[in-house]
């Protein structure tokens, strides 16, 4: 990471995480908050993307409110088939996160689908993969906290996804 963040970059990252304006000239509105002009906001955002600080600039939607259903799935996968199975799981459009974890349940993924039926259907397909010994469906039953944004100035918090 060659690029060092200056104070303006840090404020820019913080404000564009939380309060990105839905107005005709959003970069101008952001610049007004920071005391810089729209062109500088655009240039800085481009640089922060190129430097690998920003993964994406766009909308984040609520899967639930768009009518989608989601779940977290824990699986025990044979080690000698691990990557073959991991790839087959990652190939699903609705699998957004897929991680190896340090546990007997060694492969964990999230699955989002347009309906409960579709979700069940895909889970049943995956459960049938040879090399998956156990599959546990762990849909959230209750939310105590969901998605806190990082404060670049104080370095506290997390990401929502």
């Amino acid at each position: 990471m060659a690029k060092e963040l200056d104070e303006v970059d840090q404020e820019l990252l913080t404000t564009t995480q939380r309060n990105f304006p839905l107005v005709a000239e959003p970069y101008k509105a952001i610049g007004d908050r920071l005391g810089i002009d729209a062109d500088e906001v655009i240039e800085r955002l481009k640089d922060l993307k190129d430097a690998g600080y920003i993964r994406r600039l766009g909308g984040i939607f609520s899967s639930k409110k768009l009518g989608y259903v989601s779940t977290l799935v824990a699986t025990k996968v044979d080690e000698d088939k691990f990557y073959e199975i991991a790839d087959k799981i990652s190939a699903y459009h609705g699998v957004t996160h897929n991680y190896r974890r340090n546990h007997d349940f060694n492969l964990w993924f999230t699955l989002i689908a347009p309906s409960e039926e579709k979700l069940e259907e895909q889970l049943a397909e995956i459960a049938d993969f040879e090399g998956i010994n156990v599959l546990r469906n762990l849909p959230a039953e209750r939310f105590f906290k969901i998605g806190v944004k990082l404060d670049m100035r104080e370095k506290k918090g997390g990401e929502d996804s």
Binding site: I54, G58, G59, F61, K65
Partner: peptide, 21 residues
């Protein structure tokens, strides 16, 4: 969409590994 909560937020998503986390 934002008022209805369908759009949770507009903005940047950061790479954690480059932001101190």
């Amino acid at each position: 969409l934002n008022d209805e909560g369908k759009l949770r937020r507009m903005g940047v998503i950061l790479y954690h590994r480059n932001s101190g986390y």
